[in-house]
């Protein structure tokens, strides 16, 4: 089992009030699954993604990734997992505005000590894969939304992680460019990656093999597509 969540609770404290963002989540996801997470706004989708992506730790419950207990890891180990095992794609791209596409894609390699010469080759390879061969030197503000998201996808896959996490990756794109990004995910899935994506759109969720629906921090439904 690749991902195993048991009794996950995530609380946020807002002044005196405690917000239960996640309220006891049990999910198991296998290698090379393609999962869509859906649910109304505020149901805890992003919170769940952040936990799976090791950007955050749960208040209660245990999380096994590849058989090791993530809940017991320190900051450095979590950073290493984010770097090697996980590729993030965000709704608002989250690229460094002043760095070129190439440099943005190189970043994950910088943090795991890949030598500069290899870094460039790997980053170019990733950008070619997402169809941006002739846009490598451009900065994010010189690219269209769809192109920016392609850069983000290239950055997510440059380290060849096993899991791609995408939180509303098409949320800021029109239908056609959104479809192009979805095609990229399709390719990655065919290439053996595990893909988990959050979306509000049924037609986007159609691409997946399995849809998990959240409501009020709980799994409402979990069914294959």
């Amino acid at each position: 089992m690749l991902i195993e969540l048991q009794g996950i609770v995530k609380d946020y404290r807002l002044g005196l009030e405690i917000v239960h963002a996640l309220n006891g989540i049990d999910i198991r996801i296998d290698q090379n699954e393609y999962v869509a997470i859906m649910g109304p706004s505020g149901s805890g989708k992003s919170t769940l993604m952040n936990l799976i992506g090791c950007l955050d730790t749960p208040t209660e419950g245990t999380y096994f990734l590849n058989g090791s207990n993530v809940s017991h890891m320190d900051d450095d180990q979590l950073a290493e997992i984010r770097n090697r095992e996980i590729g993030f794609v965000f709704q608002n791209f989250n690229l460094l505005p002043r760095a070129s596409a190439l440099h943005n894609v190189e970043l994950p390699l910088i943090y795991n000590g890949t030598p500069a010469s290899q870094r460039r080759d790997l980053a170019e390879e990733a950008l070619i894969k997402v169809g941006l061969k002739d846009r490598m030197g451009h900065r994010p503000n010189e690219l269209s939304g769809g192109q920016r998201q392609r850069v983000a996808v290239a950055r997510a896959l440059v380290n060849k992680p096993s899991i791609i996490l995408a939180d509303e990756p098409t949320g800021n794109l029109d239908t056609r460019t959104g479809d192009e990004i979805m095609d990229l995910f399709e390719d990655l899935h065919d290439g053996g990656n595990t893909i988990i994506l959050v979306t509000h759109e049924e037609y986007i969720a159609e691409h997946s093999d399995r849809i998990i629906r959240l409501r009020d921090g709980r799994v409402e439904r979990d069914e294959s597509n």
């Binding site: 900051d75 950073a79 984010r82 090697r84 993030f88 970043l107 380290n159």
Partner: peptide, 12 residues
Amino acid sequence: GIRMAIGARRRD
């Protein structure tokens, strides 16, 4: 935040 998300450690 972006750097941390893609694997920068605190010491980086």
